[in-house]
Computed example of a mutant assay.
Amino acid sequence: MHVLELREELGLSAEQVSAVTEVFKRMRDAAVIAGEKFIVAETALDDAFASGQLGDDVLMQLLSES
C-alpha cells in the first residue's frame, strides 16, 4: 500500500499529505519520461535489427543511448 492510502491510519497532517503528494507526482512524472525514452530506444533497436544490416558500431551506439 502507498503511504497516501494509509494517511488516516498513519495520522498524517494536511502538510504531510501535501508533501507526499508532491513527491509522488514528481516520481510519476520522472517515470513517465523514462518510460517514453525506453520505448524510443527499444524501437530504434528493433528497427536496426529488422533492417538486417546492423553493425557492431551502430549496435553499440544504440545501446549506449538507451
Rank of each mutant, 00 (worst) to 15 (best):
Asp46Tyr: 13
Asp47His: 08
Val17Lys: 04
Ala30Glu: 13
Gln53Val: 10
Glu36Cys: 06
Ala41Met: 04
Thr21Pro: 02
Val58Glu: 15
Ile33Cys: 03
Glu5Ser: 04
Ile39Tyr: 07
Val20Pro: 01
Leu4His: 01
Val40Tyr: 04
Gly55Lys: 10
Lys25Trp: 10
Asp29Phe: 05
Ser13Cys: 08
Glu8Tyr: 00
Ala30Met: 11
Asp57Gln: 13
Leu62Ile: 12
Ala50Asn: 09
Gln16Cys: 02
Ala30Asp: 10
Ser18Met: 08
Asp29Val: 03
Gly55Gln: 07
Ala50Thr: 07
Ser64Gln: 15
Gly35Thr: 06
Leu59Gly: 04
Phe38Cys: 03
Asp57Ala: 14
Glu8Gln: 00
Gly35Trp: 08
Leu6Lys: 05
Ala41Leu: 05
Gly11Arg: 04
Phe24Tyr: 12
Val58Trp: 00
Arg7Pro: 01
Leu54Lys: 04
Glu42Gly: 02
Arg28Pro: 00
Ala30Val: 05
Val58Pro: 00
Ala41Lys: 03
Asp29Pro: 00
Glu22Phe: 05
Gly52Ser: 05
Val40Ile: 14
Glu15Thr: 10
Leu4Asn: 01
Gly11Glu: 04
Ala31Ile: 06
Val17Gly: 03
Arg7Gln: 10
Val40Pro: 00
Gln61Arg: 15
Ala31Arg: 15
Ser18Gln: 14
Ala14Gly: 10
Met27Phe: 14
Gln16Glu: 15
Arg26Glu: 14
Arg28His: 13
Ala44His: 07
Glu36Ser: 10
Ala50Phe: 06
Ala31Asp: 12
Ala30Ser: 12
Arg26Pro: 01
Phe49Arg: 12
Gly55Ser: 12
Leu45Ala: 05
Gly52Arg: 07
Gly11Ala: 04
Ser18Trp: 02
Glu42Gln: 12
Ala34Cys: 03
Ala19Phe: 09
Arg28Ala: 15
